[in-house]
Amino acid sequence: MTTVDYGGWLINELSLAVSDLVNPSKRVSILYFASALFFAFVLFLFRYGKGAPRRLSALFSWRLWWHPSARVDYALWLGNRLILSLLFPKVITTLGVVTWLMFQLREVGLSPLAMTIPDWSVIALFSLCYFLLDDFSRFWLHWLMHRWSWLWAFHRVHHSAKVLTPFTVLRTHPVEGMLFYGRSLLVQGSLVALFVTLFPGQVSLLMIGGVFVATYVFNICGANLRHSPVPISYGKTLERWLISPAQHQLHHSAAVEHYDCNFGVVLAVWDRWFRCLQFGSDQQKLRYGTLSTLDQTGVFGQYLSPILFLGRGLNGRQAGLIKTTLVNAGKAKARETTQAKPE
């Protein structure tokens, strides 16, 4: 490749990243920013009347959007785009996995169901199963990332955000990005293979405007507020079933009492099942970050941080725990906190 080729690739990838802002399948789409704002405003208007605009004012501060932590979010977003574009074509494809799995399922004797089931039932069943499996697997992987030190080493990049903006959702280490890809490959591969074997030619996802209906509703109803300075609680009754923005902000809280809670994405039932659900509040005032030097680290330091973190752990007291790969990340986090100099 010549310099011109590299330049072309760079511009193409960066423009694709920016095009996420108008892509309705991406959470950072402007459409969802706007809908989240509208959603929050209506809810606050209903709850606090004239006080509603004041509660949203933090979202309109340049101090938030140009905070050093937010700038690291942007850099990781664009940097990951470049790194993942190099990795993705080389990794195994979902289509390949589904094809192979479906073939194996047929070989062990699984065949299309003998009875005729209407298309809409298959679509509804597939969409429901996909939603549940996808949401649970996200929860579980997230839970593991806090539980296993060598996974936490990568995930703490996300938690090092000192301010939360909608772009914090993209503040991710590329290795974690690959883990997300592997999770999605496994979930999509197994579920699609099973369904197309049982219901060939009938399987489809319930879509709105080219996006899975659950993703669309989740995003349109303010998913972007999860990573924002605006705490919105759904009230205890609803928060037993759905994770509110305030609950996710608790998950990001630097306070020890909030460690390892609310891992869920959409449903709160998984957190209840794993006994780690905490309720949020519109009034909560939280401090975010890992309370380690990572919170002040720039983008390159963030990329290298897992190596340093694991190296330190292997040389120090954590070595034995890492070997068992069953470190309680809450404790690990707390240990970090006590080791780190307070700001």
């Binding site: 996420d20 399948s25 991406k26 959470r27 990951n80 785009r81 993942l84 574009s85 990795l87 993705f88 979902t94 289509l95 589904v98 094809t99 479906m102 597939f126 996909y130 996200r138 997230h142 996300h158 914090t168 959702v169 993209l170 503040r171 991710t172 590329p174 974690e176 990005g177 997300f180 999605s184 999509q188 699609v192 293979a193 369904f195 197309v196 074997t197 219901f199 060939p200 030619g201 009938q202 399987v203 489809s204 996802l205 879509m207 899975f212 996710h248 891992f263 994405v265």
Partner: peptide, 22 residues
């Protein structure tokens, strides 16, 4: 079609290279 229409379903699920966290 012996693939059960899998590529159409996967097209719907397609997300592309991004690293969205939870």
């Amino acid at each position: 079609d012996r693939t059960g229409g899998m590529d159409d379903v996967l097209e719907q699920l397609k997300s592309g290279p991004s690293a969205e966290n939870d």
